[in-house]
Amino acid sequence: MGNDVVPFKVAIPEADLADLRRRLAAARWPEKETVGDWSQGVPLEWLRDLCSYWGDGYDWRRCEDRLNAHDQFVTTIDGLDVHFLHVRSPNPDALPLLLTHGWPGSVLEFLDVIGPLTDPAAHGGDPADAFHLVVPSLPGYGFSGRPSGAGWGAPRIAAAWAELMARLGYDRYGAQGGDWGSAVTIGLAAVDPGHLAGVHLNFLMTGPGGDLSDLTDEERDALTAMAEFQEWGGGYAAQQSTRPQTLGYGLVDSPVGQCAWITEKFHAWTDHDGDPYTALTRDQMLDDVSLYWLTATAASSARLYWETGLARPSRVHALSSGLGVTVPAGVSVFPREIIRPSRRWIEHHFSDLRFYERTDRGGHFAAFEQPALFSDQVRRAFRTMR
């Protein structure tokens, strides 16, 4: 393929969808949990109900059509095929913006923000806030290639993204990310600062450092949430950071297992009062789960944790310190995010923080859960950087 940028359309074979339905119908289920909540994981009846709909009611072709409504491409960078959406604004002076997802997300998270960001005037906004969007699938995720060798951590992905933007002819651009997209975006600030107008993050792994004196109420709440996550919420990361291949055998073979592994995070990390369907619909959840299932990327996506060592004790400090971001930056903190840093915690690592806001709703999957609010945050952050 060389440096060619080749048009791409999603076309999952009907046989793959029939196989999914067959596996769901033949699933072997464990006994019911011994508690009345989600503290042992996804409740049996909740998951059985969702998987029943997945097998008899859910329409993958609807999701496929939504993806194919946008221009998609594949190009080879550093020996790996990279899939991406490329949606240009009707405003020729729009700022190019790279949007990067994380785990267990995908490019699907951004479908509802494409219109507001590329054509703000058509969505009640200012035409001057328009972006040309580039939305890639991370290596090992979705329709991008699966690395056949080690080494594809966030820094290498950032270098690939810099090459992608150059290949598309964008000399100056912005970058936005949450979850792993945040790590890749911070990596871009290191490898391609001369071409970056700025970055916007909706997730950031940082804390107060060693100084716990004079904490605000918000900072104390953030530390309490981080401690709760470390106690009860980090098991998935420990597994993916140490034995992603072992995990992959079960998830690539069992759609019920894949569904549970992902939807547990939709429950834990979204903003709701007990019913995760008030944050994301069944179809939104199953669109994302189906993408992982139909591309068989449970193991390859989990390897990004292994590459980075996210949950390994020897790597924790290195991942949350020494960020040293010097490009213009903005950060939005959503109230049900896993880590909710204060402005002063961030300013230890970002020398040019131009935008910081705490929103009143939303969680880890900000663009997926709250597309209008996310779009507004991105627009206003980049007004300070254009």
Rank of each mutant, 00 (worst) to 15 (best):
D71Y: 06
N68I: 12
E64C: 05
E64G: 05
T75C: 05
G79F: 09
D81G: 14
N68Y: 12
I77Y: 00
T75G: 03
L80G: 00
D71K: 12
S52R: 15
R62V: 11
V74G: 03
D78R: 02
F73T: 02
D65E: 15
V74M: 12
H70K: 07
Y58S: 05
S52H: 14
R66T: 09
W54L: 09
C63Q: 11
R62E: 08
W60P: 01
W54M: 09
D71N: 13
Y53W: 15
D56N: 15
C63D: 02
D65S: 14
I77D: 00
Q72N: 10
R66V: 08
V74Y: 02
L80S: 00
W54V: 07
R66Q: 13
A69P: 14
T76S: 09
V74K: 15
I77M: 00
R61S: 12
G57N: 10
D81F: 04
R66A: 10
D59P: 03
E64L: 02
R66P: 04
D81H: 10
D71G: 10
D65G: 11
T76C: 07
F73W: 08
L80K: 01
T75H: 06
Q72M: 06
D56F: 10
G57A: 10
D59I: 04
Q72V: 01
L80Q: 01
D81C: 11
S52K: 12
D65P: 01
W54Y: 12
Q72I: 03
L80P: 01
F73H: 11
Y53F: 15
G57Q: 09
H70N: 13
L80T: 02
E64S: 08
G57C: 12
V74I: 15
E64D: 09
Y58W: 11
N68V: 13
F73G: 04
D81P: 01
R61N: 07
G79Y: 04
V74R: 15
R61F: 05
H70Q: 14
R62T: 03
A69H: 15
G79D: 12
D71C: 06
G55N: 09
D65T: 05
A69E: 14
Y58V: 09
I77N: 00
V74S: 08
I77C: 00
T76M: 04
F73N: 05
T76Y: 00
D56I: 07
E64I: 12
I77F: 00
D78S: 04
R61G: 01
Y53V: 06
D81E: 14
D81I: 09
W54E: 05
T75F: 01
S52F: 11
I77R: 00
Q72Y: 03
G79N: 11
D71S: 14
S52M: 12
E64F: 03
R62Q: 12
Y53A: 14
D59R: 07
G79I: 05
D59N: 13
D81N: 13
D65M: 11
N68H: 09
N68G: 12
L67R: 08
E64W: 01
I77P: 00
D65I: 01
F73C: 02
D56E: 15
I77V: 02
